[in-house]
Design a protein around this nucleic acid. Structure first.
Lengths: 191, 191
DNA sequence: ACCTGAACACCGTTCAAGT
DNA sequence: ACCTGAACACCGTTCAAGT
């Protein structure tokens, strides 16, 4: 479930597939428990494989993080589909930005890792954000056309704003309501 | 210059003082060059002391960071004095928040370290922010009384907002103008 | 083709031995 | 009183040897 590349070039050997799945499962649990900076050795160990096997399947930490985000990305994709069909562009954008902020909070320290990934061209974690930024651009354009937000704000600025709110609310340990409040406060300026 | 504790209990032995100064000097340079997460061993080595000596003077990384921020904190303190005497509370708050954001950007990864420090009660780095949050509270109160900003925003929320903007603009490698723009965008909601 | 785990480099932190 | 640096634990990453 949730393979990032839907078009896999060739099937894995069955033992390799088992290892892949097991590593991903353990990694998701570890990220959820201790954040994305948790020890990779520890993940390999808990998955019952050597560190080399983990590196073979996921050449970098970002690779593993991107894979572990599969489920959340799937949910966002479904939401994007619905919101693109909405007839209230302003409300659609609001709902979308909240969902993106929550996605960025999926794991502790994820906002930092993603922001870092945006500084390198070919990061897999950055690639995983591609659908997010594209949908954001689209919904921002619609909201502008509907006059719901200012015409002079760039989608990337909005994405940065949402990232920063996600970061701050995660660092403060905010509740869902806290995130909502701060996001509303920070995005007033785009209207 | 810029000792955090102005009331030192007793003078250091002269060789200890020399080491202290040298470590702080090297650390400031290293933080400026590679960010606050740079290797402490490396700092000790460049300062010509053993790692134990560094730990004796600065028991934690946060201690060393707080000490290295002395100069910037001094400048902020001077600015605070001037702004408290201003007769335009709205403009004073704006200028202050920009200065705080710039302070938080002094070193790479500083916003993260400070946000983390706020999660522990007795962190020296958190203590170093005490004057900042107090001045912020005062200027926020004045701005409210003058009707320059909304009455229902908490000073701590504003501090969080400024931190998050500092974080994002640092991650994006924004220029001074970029920071200004994003700060203005993010703080529109408080008015 | 894939896995294993030893090996290396690096870092934070402590502490016994020195002066 | 302070410094030194060896020592330990831990982690990321690679790679030669296996199956």
């Amino acid at each position: 479930m949730g393979t990032v590349n839907a078009a896999a070039p060739r099937p894995m050997r069955s033992d390799a597939q088992r290892n892949y799945d097991r590593i991903l499962e353990v990694a998701s649990a570890a990220f959820a428990e201790k954040g994305v900076l948790t020890s990779l050795d520890d993940i390999a160990c808990r998955a019952g494989v050597g560190p080399g096997t983990l590196y073979r399947h996921f050449p970098s930490r970002d690779c593993l993080i991107a894979a572990a985000l599969g489920e959340s990305l799937g949910r966002l994709d479904a939401l994007a589909g619905r919101l693109k069909a909405s007839d209230d562009p302003g409300a659609a954008l609001d709902e979308w930005l909240l969902a993106v902020a929550n996605h960025l909070r999926t794991y502790d320290n994820l906002p930092e890792s993603i922001a870092e990934a945006f500084r390198t061209e070919d990061s897999p974690l950055r690639a995983s954000c591609r659908p997010l930024t594209e949908t954001t651009s689209l919904l921002v354009r619609r909201a502008k056309e509907a006059g719901a937000i200012r015409a002079d704000v760039e989608p990337l600025d909005i994405f940065a704003l949402v990232s920063s709110v996600a970061w701050a609310s995660q660092r403060r340990g905010d509740s869902d309501a806290g995130l909502r409040r701060m996001l509303a406060l920070a995005t007033t300026g785009i209207r």
